[in-house]
Amino acid sequence: MIYILCLIFFMVGLYGVLVKKNIIKIVLGLIIMEYAVNLFLIMLGYREGGVAPIISEGDSITEFIKHSVDPLPQALVLTSIVIGLGVIALMVAICIRLYEKYGTFDITEMRRLKG
């Protein structure tokens, strides 16, 4: 169920990229897609009523594994957020430069390269 929500979230982002003409909205669409995937990754490792995957002294390992959520997806998501941040920063920077050059945010007017 929750995965389907993720999927819908993802589709919303894809819709943005596909349909919107404003490059900022396209960037937003991409961000939404990315976060949908991040959410999906987090969901993979989640278990109901789980504890944070931090092992403290004195815990038995087997008990801990039974209760904790999977730590790996969280690590992945952290990394992916960092990467996403870099990409988005670059994207927005390029958007600004594009606006300086073309004087518009409309992607359909940026068609010098074709054929």
């Binding site: 991409l30 990409v87 670059l90 994207m91 430069r97 390269l113």
Partner: peptide
Amino acid sequence: EELEASFKYLVLGTV
């Protein structure tokens, strides 16, 4: 052209 290309590359690459 460079910016336009870069942006399109970026969007598709990110997808």
